[in-house]
Amino acid sequence: MAIEVEHELHRRRRSRNYGLGLALAAFVALVFGLTVVKVAEIGPEAAAPHMADSP
């Protein structure tokens, strides 16, 4: 097999890197979304009582 700039091996590696990147980005989005929902459900006073009196 001829040596090419772009090898099958590079294609598979790239698919792994993009896949992992997307999975991590999705995980960050999930944790952020979950935080927003949880805080909204219990209310800002309960989520951060020390902030309740601040303007």
């Binding site: 090898h7 091996l9 598979r12």
Partner: peptide, 18 residues
């Protein structure tokens, strides 16, 4: 060294999904 580069069986992302 070339033998190592020409390995065809390196995993893609789909293999981990499998």
């Amino acid at each position: 060294d070339l033998g190592l580069i020409e390995r065809q069986d390196e995993a893609g992302f789909g293999d981990y999904v499998q």
